[in-house]
Amino acid sequence: MAAPESGDGNNGAARMVTLISSDNTRFEVEAAAASLSQTLQLTILDGGGGGGDGIPLPNVDSATLSKVLEYCIKHAPAAANGGAPNATAVDRAELERFDNEFVNIDQSVLYSLIMAAHNLEIEGLQSLVAKKVADMIKGKSPMEIRRTLGFPDPTPEEQAEMNAHMLEYGWAYE
């Protein structure tokens, strides 16, 4: 998660890298922000992504990538501080507010985000989205979970399995 420590201060003002989405849109961002991705961090430390080259990301479309980068840019300063120790309570509250708002989006966008965060290994974003989806599930019955998550209505067989599960693991439903 930590930004490349040496690269940050020593390379002078804001080294930029270019990322290319699956639909060929180019995004120019600070290396420190892109380095929230463990995957990209390695490439960037190797000197990739600068100049006219760009790092192609064939698994991430532009809509998703711009969202991912919005997160990275917002979180880069805190990550550069090695997490939270130097951050003030105000900064932390602001990040939290940003996070809450950030995941207040359509389910399918959430899933695109978590897939991208998974592929790019952006730990914080993965946790954030996972927590959001978990919150959507919390306190619901299996049937409600199915509906919330967009599963088709259960077949009679599945319904029977669900009932059996509820009987068997009754303690989880108390």
Partner: peptide, 28 residues
């Protein structure tokens, strides 16, 4: 959609649930 997510990600999501809720989700 949720059903199309790979197992790693599903596991991450269930890991963010309290244990009981995660078990309950397995009934789905």
């Amino acid at each position: 959609s949720f059903p199309s997510l790979p197992q790693d990600i599903v596991s991450r999501i269930t890991a963010a649930l309290p244990f009981k809720e995660a078990v309950r989700m397995s009934a789905v």
